[in-house]
Amino acid sequence: MNPIMNQDPAAPSSTPAPAPPPRAAAKPVALSVRDLRAGYAGGAAVLKGVSLDISERRVTAIIGPSGCGKSTLIRCLNRLHEALPGAFCDGQIMLGGRSVLDWDPVLLRREVGMVFQRPNPFPTMNIFDNVAAGLTLNGERDRAKIAERVESSLRRAALWDEVKDKLKSPGTGLSGGQQQRLCIARALAVEPRVLLMDEPCSALDPVATARIEELLLEIKETLTVVIVTHNMQQAARVSEYTAFMLSGELVEFGPTQGLFTKPADKRTEDYVTGRFG
C-alpha cells in the first residue's frame, strides 16, 4: 500500500480504493488526482483515467507528445477545462482535504493559479493594474497594501527592476518574456497554493526561457508548481518529479532523474531518448 495515501488527509477511507498512483511521492501531497477522465461530449476521451499525487512545494513536470492530454490534465486541476463548451471532467481531485468539485470554482482558482502558453496580459490595463487585477477581485481596497503586494510579486517574478519606472505603461508594450513574467507576477499576487503552468516558455526565446526557469527554482520554495512542457530538457532542469503521458494515459510518473535515466516503461524510454514524439 502506498504510504502517502495514508498520510493524505484528502483520501477518504470510505471510497473504494482507486488505482494507486504509479509511484509514491516523498513529500506531503498538495493535489491528489484519482481516475481522472475528461474530454468533450460526443468526442473521444482526452484523459482516460489518470491518477497521480503532486507533492507540495515541488515542481512536477508533465511531458508527452502533442495531444496526449497534458494541458487538459492541468486545466482540470483549476476547473478551467469544464468551462469550455461541451467539456466534461470525471474522477477525483483532492486539494487540502476537499474535492475540487466541491469548491466554488472562483475560490478554487484563487488557490490554484495558472500561467498560460502565450503571455496574456490584459491589454486595457497597465503593468501595475495587471498585477493588481487578482487582488482587486479578492476585494482588496487598501491602496498601500496593493502597491506593496504588486511590488513583491513583481520581485518574485524577477521583473521589478525592469518595470519599476513604467508601472503605468501598458503591459502589452513589454517583450514576450517580460509579458510572461508579468503574467507569473499576476498569478503570484493572489498568493495561490499551487501554480499551474501550461507550456509557459513555448512562445519565448531561449534567454527569456532561462529567466523563467531561474525564477521557478525560487518560487517553488513557497508553492507547488505543475508545469506542462514539450521540452524534455526543461523538465529535466526544473522539476523534481516528472509524469509522462501518452494518448490520455499516464505512462510513468516518478522522480525526474529516474524517469530520464532509468525509465521503467519502454514507451517512456522511446520518448525521452527521442525515438518518437
Partner: peptide, 9 residues
C-alpha cells in the same frame, strides 16, 4: 481564461 484563472466571477 486569464481572468477566470485569477478567480474572477
Amino acid at each position: 481564461e486569464g481572468m477566470h484563472a485569477l478567480g474572477a466571477t
